[in-house]
Amino acid sequence: MIHHPLELCLVFSSLLFCIGLAGALSRSNSILVLLGIELMLNAANLNFVAFWRYGPSPAPATGIVFVAFSVAVAAAEAAVGLALVISIYRRQRSIRLQEAVRLKG
């Protein structure tokens, strides 16, 4: 059924994306939600590399450069997200998303 490596890579990244999505939707711990989002970002990066490697008209290094940028943005997102988690914990003594209903004070 699956005969092309690109197809296999796409199925792999779809599964990874959906695991991340299920995790981000089902957990109420904000750190776990952030980790689910990181998994989804990883799945997107995986697609970039898969298309770069097995795609129809490979460009020399564009896919690699795009993944490098994407990883950098993901790192910035993780840093800001976890700083927000720590800040919310300081004010509300909890990191459950249901209890973080106020952004100020």
Binding site: N45, I64, V71, A75
Partner: peptide, 19 residues
């Protein structure tokens, strides 16, 4: 490891360093 497998060594090492 998948990035290494696909021949994107630079991204693989960036992934290890960053993540």
């Amino acid at each position: 490891v998948f990035y290494l497998f696909a021949g994107a060594e630079f991204v693989a090492f960036a992934q290890v360093l960053v993540y």
